[in-house]
């Protein structure tokens, strides 16, 4: 059976064992070209193991990985950029030498490497650091250099393990913008993090891994739809509406609170046979409603829910 898959990265039934422990248990993933894919999982779930296989550092014990429909092998390393969670650079080397070294390792010639290094140092405004040794730089500066060294060779596939850790908000935003611009240029990105807000903001798709098993994956919006609990929030103009909560009516109230603008917010959970229109109609007759929206579960909630229920 042969067919051309549109995904840039395909992981097919991959197993990896450490001694007798199965750290990747029948994992399959597909990452479409030019998308950002979020990889989630609690500590020790097997994310790093999977990432190392994708970065051609290790190979699966069973199963296959394809990059652009070719079996992944070490020849692809020039197409891959990898920033591990635990970072480090040569302390005694200068910034420029360091960057040139990584560019050459990824197959650039010396001249090409020099051009790229110059370009990125200008772009990130760090030309004045060029001859500084790594040990003279602050942690945030070193992180910047590390990030440049990862993307210097224009990888088609970028693996970022906790890319924002160690950055202050300003630099984190800068890296975020860079990631988005790389995505817009067609780079496929795998992004592993514990920060759910980053996932919601940046990713198109995600997968949750727990104890070496993939317990959930799909497009972010689809997943959120899937976990949608038919909950709706009504926001009222005035906040002295105790009667709404106390009056016995057909709609099930699960939460009532005053929001930060001093408005009353009530969350309703609809039954199968109830529609949001009916809810709105019921309350709009005698109250001024200033907001009405569905309450989508956050990725954070889905993650906690999935991980605890699968433990």
């Amino acid at each position: 059976m042969t067919f051309v898959n549109m995904s840039f990265i395909q992981v097919e039934n991959v197993y990896k064992y450490f001694e007798d422990k199965c750290v990747s248990n029948n994992i399959s993933l597909e990452i479409p070209e030019g998308e950002i894919f979020g990889l989630l999982g609690p500590n020790g779930a097997g994310k790093t193991t999977l990432i190392r296989m994708l970065a051609t550092i290790t190979t699966p014990d069973k199963g296959k990985i394809f990059l652009n429909n070719q079996p992944l092998n070490s020849n692809h390393s020039s197409m891959i950029g990898y920033m591990p969670e635990e970072r480090g650079l040569y302390k005694k080397m200068s910034v420029v030498d360091q960057l040139l070294f990584f560019a050459e390792l990824k197959g650039y010639t010396r001249t090409q490497a020099k051009q790229e290094v110059k370009f990125w140092m200008n772009k990130l405004d760090i030309v004045s650091w060029a001859d500084k040794k790594m040990e003279e730089l602050s942690k945030g500066m070193a992180q910047k250099i590390q990030f440049i060294s990862t993307i210097l060779h224009k990888p088609k596939f970028l693996i970022l393990d906790e890319p924002f850790s160690g950055f202050d908000p300003v630099n984190a935003d800068m890296v975020k913008d860079l990631i988005i611009s790389l995505k817009n240029e067609g780079t496929t990105i795998l992004f592993s993090t514990h920060r759910m807000d980053n996932i919601e903001e940046l990713c198109d798709q995600l997968a949750i891994i727990h104890n070496g098993v993939k317990i959930l994956d799909g497009k972010i919006n689809t997943i959120r739809q899937q976990f949608f609990n038919h909950e709706y929030i009504l926001e009222f103009m005035n906040n002295d509406l105790d009667n709404i909560e106390t009056s016995n009516n057909q709609f099930n109230i699960i939460q009532a609170q005053i929001n930060s603008f001093g408005r009353k917010e009530i969350t309703f959970k609809l039954k199968e046979n109830q529609s949001p229109q009916e809810l709105y109609k019921q309350y709009s007759q005698s109250n001024t409603i200033i907001g009405f929206r569905e309450k989508m579960p956050t990725i954070h909630q889905i993650f906690v829910n999935q991980v605890t229920s699968n433990s």
Binding site: R52, A55, T56, I57, S74, S77, S78, I80, Y82, M83, P84, E86, R87, G88, L89, Y90, K91, F102, L105, K106, S149, T150
Partner: peptide, 16 residues
Amino acid sequence: EEKTNRIVEVIISSVK
């Protein structure tokens, strides 16, 4: 040094 500074993971994603 490469191991304790964690440089090695990046390097062996590029070379054997």
